[in-house]
Design a protein around this nucleic acid. Structure first.
Length: 929
RNA sequence: GGGCGUUUGGCUCAGCGGGAGAGCACUUCCUUCACACGGAAGGGGUCAUCGGUUCAAAUCCGGUAACGCCCACCA
């Protein structure tokens, strides 16, 4: 997207005019440039933010530099943009921090692939050159996803883009590492970790994905060195026979009587193939009921075996190298990959008659979350963070409601993880990343973690070496909310954090609650003086394809958000996604089902705006400032000339009342992050109320000329203006484009910084009487239209219609409706219209009973008595059934005694209305003969 | 083995204690001066199932089933 400063001045506002057709592609790029040029994405919103209001900040979950925008990003960033745009319109200083994650494994893999095409490995280049190549790669491709965010209209602060390997971020990493190291919270340990033999690095427990796989349980015979009671072998069961090369014992449960004598006798076994003598011993870990009750113990290749090995002082024999190929300790199997080794081991067991039998067995197998290679539990020396002490405050923060998950149920997931937390393996055998800041002196044995690289050993003056490993990417991601704000040592970072920390909300997918969200809470509580990183966490649904299957490259079922933008427009994509956000954990995205709807909605908005603009030729809002009989709120001081409504008719009062209710629905704190409900409320108001009814009412009022016309113009402009404001966070482009053409009178130059409608101010527009009257108008119009459809009468043919009000408030309704005769006459196209509480049914008329009304439509010579009778009989049946239900309720002592008074009263009214309707229907049926 | 989610018209879903709703699809009519990416009128659902609580349950509680997700060291 090319940006031009000039654009701000030369942007063509096309006052009072919109192109005949809505073309999203045409309007989006220039508007985005307009916003950027105005500086609206910055903290002060181009000077329009109110510094007295509390700031509102969000950190974007930093996409990987290797990332390409996918549907998950599209959804998540739509939600964040909705929140930040609303806060900005509310006048709060806002900051949406944007940037990318260096993504250790993902980026390193990408760059390695690039060199692989030239037949090179990273070892051919050497560490320094390879890291340099990663930086080059980042410079070339790293901003792709940022540009895609711009195409989505995201109002991030692009002027201050962050990267998890920025110099200041590197200092944050060192600060954190050193602090925890000195506190003993970071330590080096020799233990079994999850090893990816393809990425050749250690992984943390939650970077391993477990999937159930069909496998086998092989029963192997291990001969006893000395037969006991005629028994000369034991049978062990294993899913991984190749690891037997590293077996250093066999364990049974201490209370297992089958083997008690052998254990007591100190029995030893001769490990087949390798001819090693290994002990039989008892350990509580062993489940006597599984397999044969005998477990082969491989301390170097299984975490449980490792623990048992420690308890029983067994040797740890690591038989695999870093690529999971059998090493020299595997004897004649050396050089075989683990799969081949398995086949070979089994073949030999079989040949020796030592393969007892085989069973089918399903079990969970771990896979690398980056490349899906099967994980090898592998003994090695790694760095760990001691998590238990850090988890306690993080549990408390959520318990105390200082961080709130939405939906709340995700807190249980968080608690479960935190309460069962294990130490975090943070070292990675990669080159791309934050190198562990620990230095060693091989001469004197000195070692320490340091802020600056030491030139010489402080003890003996020799040249020290730095640890070869880099840190887990998530170790740096956990600092994102504060490391992006200058912590620990950027000038001015205290003021920045004081204003914008903690951030307001974090929106993300559920799959990184542990990897990222939980660890941000932990590190923030530790390094930000007990402060949480964000107040709310939004866990949005996962976007699946229309069949409910996760989208992925390998499945080829992914949808590119940029394609959707090209096909339907950005606003439609954003609105369509938001529409589907509920508390559910999944979102089945069916393009055909949702996108045309969203696009049609945008088109509807466009055309409604065109209608309004087309009818403003003689509009002049500046001359009049009163609000009609109902005084309206003071206009905001910064928008003195802003157009205000002037309700004259009930229709005017009605639409303003509906607008006030909508505004209340969308008010701060009421939406509860229910984006779907907000989007639906906007859709319903704009389409079903404003377009379907008010614009139709307005046509008649405009045609009257004079004061009625002038007032209607004001109301149209006011309601459209407010609706655009409320819609803007979801559909920023189309609303801005229209707003630029609308004579709203606001002095602000752009909708993005225009004031959010205040529910409290609009509340006085709520008018239940007008709502009731217009509901009845709509009911009459619908009844006449229905009769037209039934009898095939053209809308052009004017009809004679009489309406009798029959409800509990019949007299008042008749008076109120009499004032609406013009509306009814226009929309129902009547030649003569009579509304009263005593109207009589003309001889040849169709009768519709609805909403406390009887609508008589004279159809001389047209009434099809058979059809009318059939219809009335159907209505009679329904009314009778409904009435029976209500009467049953009213006859129920319990209901009368225990139900709320207003419910009982309403039921009585409904029953009375139904009774009267039923009587009328029966009368009509008799009249029809 | 634990925890969680989903189950409402043909499809995708909303509603979550007192009248079964929306969009799409379908049927009929309408190219009227905002919009055919439109307007109008219609047809279509025993709200998975069993049991409980309640005056009242699609809505709350419990059981069951199906599908899905997460966690967990039974080799």
């Amino acid at each position: 997207m090319v940006l031009s400063i000039d654009l701000f001045d030369t942007y063509e506002r096309n006052p009072m005019e919109l192109s005949k057709s809505y073309n999203p592609q045409q309007i989006e790029a220039p508007l985005f440039a307009l916003w950027q040029a105005g500086g609206y994405f910055g903290r002060d919103a181009g000077g329009f933010a109110n510094p007295d209001l509390p700031p509102y900040s969000i950190v974007i979950p930093p996409p990987n530099v290797t990332g390409m925008l996918h549907m998950g990003h599209a959804l998540n960033n739509t939600l964040q943009d909705v929140l930040i745009r609303k806060a900005r319109m509310q006048g709060r200083p806002t900051r949406w921090i944007v940037g990318t994650d260096h993504a250790g494994i993902a980026t390193q893999n990408r760059v390695e692939q690039k060199f692989a095409k030239e037949g090179l490995t990273r070892f051919d280049l050497g560490r320094e050159a390879f890291v340099e190549a990663c930086w080059d790669w980042r410079k070339e491709y790293g901003s792709t996803i940022i540009e895609q965010l711009k195409a989505m209209g995201c109002s991030c602060d692009y002027s201050d883009e962050k990267f998890t390997m920025d110099p200041s971020y590197q200092r944050a990493i060192r600060r954190v590492f050193i602090d925890w190291y000195r506190q003993g919270l970071i330590y080096k340990g020799h233990r079994i970790i999850n090893w990816c033999p393809r990425c050749t690095t250690a992984l943390a427990d939650d970077e391993v994905e477990h999937t159930d796989e069909h496998g086998h349980l092989w029963y192997l015979r291990y001969p006893l060195v000395t037969p006991v009671d005629g028994r000369d072998y034991l049978v062990v069961a294993t899913t991984r026979p190749e690891t037997m090369l590293g077996d250093t014992g066999v364990a049974v449960n201490p209370s297992d009587e089958r083997y008690a004598a052998l254990v007591a006798a100190g029995a030893q076994l001769r490990l087949p193939l390798v001819d090693r003598v290994i002990p039989l011993f008892a350990d509580d870990y062993v489940d006597a009921c599984f397999g044969t009750g005998c477990v082969k113990v491989t301390p170097a290749h299984d975490p449980n075996d490792f623990d048992m090995g420690q308890r029983h002082d067994l040797a740890q024999i690591n038989v695999f190298d870093e690529n999971a190929v059998v090493n020299e300790l595997g004897g004649r199997f050396a050089g075989m990959p683990r799969e081949a080794a398995r086949e070979a081991v089994l073949a030999e067991f079989e040949a020796l008659g030592l393969l007892d039998h085989v069973e089918e067995h399903d079990h969970a197998v771990g896979h690398c979350y980056r490349c899906h290679t099967t994980i090898e539990p592998w003994l090695s020396e790694q760095w760990f963070v001691s998590m238990k002490p850090l988890a306690q405050p993080a549990i408390a923060a959520v318990r105390e409601g200082r961080v709130i998950f939405n939906p709340k149920r995700w807190e249980n997931v968080y608690f479960h993880w935190m309460e069962n937390i294990r130490d975090w393996c943070i070292s990675r055998q990669l080159w791309w990343g934050h190198r562990i800041p620990v230095f060693y002196c091989d001469s004197c044995g000195w070692t320490d973690a340091l802020k600056e690289d030491p030139a010489l050993c402080p003890v003996c003056g020799a040249v020290p070496r730095q640890d070869e490993d880099v840190l887990d990417t998530w170790f740096s991601s956990q600092l994102w909310p504060f490391a992006t704000q200058g912590w620990p040592d950027e000038p001015g970072h205290q003021a920045e954090l004081a204003a914008y920390y903690p951030t307001q909300v974090l929106s993300t997918a559920r799959d990184i609650i542990f990897l990222w969200v939980a660890r941000m809470v932990i590190s923030s509580l530790y390094f930000q003086e007990g402060e949480v990183p964000f107040k709310d966490v939004i866990i949005h649904p996962t976007v699946l394809d229309k069949r409910g299957i996760p989208m992925s490259k390998s499945r080829g079922n992914g949808i590119d958000p940029l394609d959707l933008i090209a096909k339907y427009g950005t606003d439609a994509m954003r609105f369509g996604l938001a529409l589907q956000v509920t508390g559910s954990q999944d979102l089945k995205f069916d393009e055909e089902n949702i996108m045309p709807m969203a696009r049609n909605f945008a088109n509807k908005i466009w055309n409604a705006a065109r209608f309004v603009l087309m009818n403003l030729d003689d509009f002049s809002f500046a001359e009049r400032s009163e609000y009609g009989e109902k005084p309206l709120p003071e206009a905001p001081a910064d928008a003195v000339a802003r157009v205000s409504p002037q309700p004259l008719s009930d229709a005017d009062h009605w639409i303003l009342s509906r607008l006030a209710r909508l505004t209340d629905e969308l008010a701060e704190g009421k939406e509860g992050y229910d984006f779907g409900a907000a989007a639906r409320a906007l859709y319903r108001f704009f389409w079903s109320e404003f377009c379907d009814w008010y614009i139709e009412f307005a046509k008649g009022q405009l045609a009257q000329g004079g004061d009625a016309r002038a007032a209607t113009q004001r109301n149209l402009v006011f309601v459209l203006d407010c609706a655009l404001r409320l819609l803007h966070p979801f559909m920023p482009f189309i609303t801005e484009q229209i707003w630029q053409s609308l004579p709203h009178g606001d002095s602000r130059p752009s909708l993005i910084v225009a004031a959010w409608p205040q529910a409290e101010q609009l509340a006085q527009l709520i008018d239940p009487q007008a709502e009731h009257a217009i509901e009845q108008v709509c009911a009459i119009v619908a009844a006449v239209r229905s009769a037209r459809a039934r009898y095939g009468i053209s809308p052009k043919e004017a009809l004679t219609v009489a309406v009798r009000t029959t409800g509990v408030t019949a007299e008042a309704d008749a008076v109120a409706l009499a004032a609406q005769e013009l509306l009814v006459a226009t929309l129902a196209n009547t030649a003569t219209l009579l509304i009263s509480a005593t109207a009589q049914k003309p001889a040849q008329a169709s009768v519709s009973i609805t909403q406390g009304l009887e609508v008589y439509i004279t159809l001389e010579g047209l009434v099809d008595f058979a059809a009318e009778r059939a219809r009335l009989q159907k209505e009679q049946a329904k009314a009778a059934a409904d009435l029976e239900r209500l009467n049953k309720k009213l006859g129920n002592e319990g209901f009368l005694a225990k139900a709320a008074a207003d419910i009982v009263e309403k039921t009585r009214c409904d029953a009375a209305d139904l009774q009267s309707a039923l009587t009328q229907i029966e009368q009509q049926l008799r009249d029809l003969g």
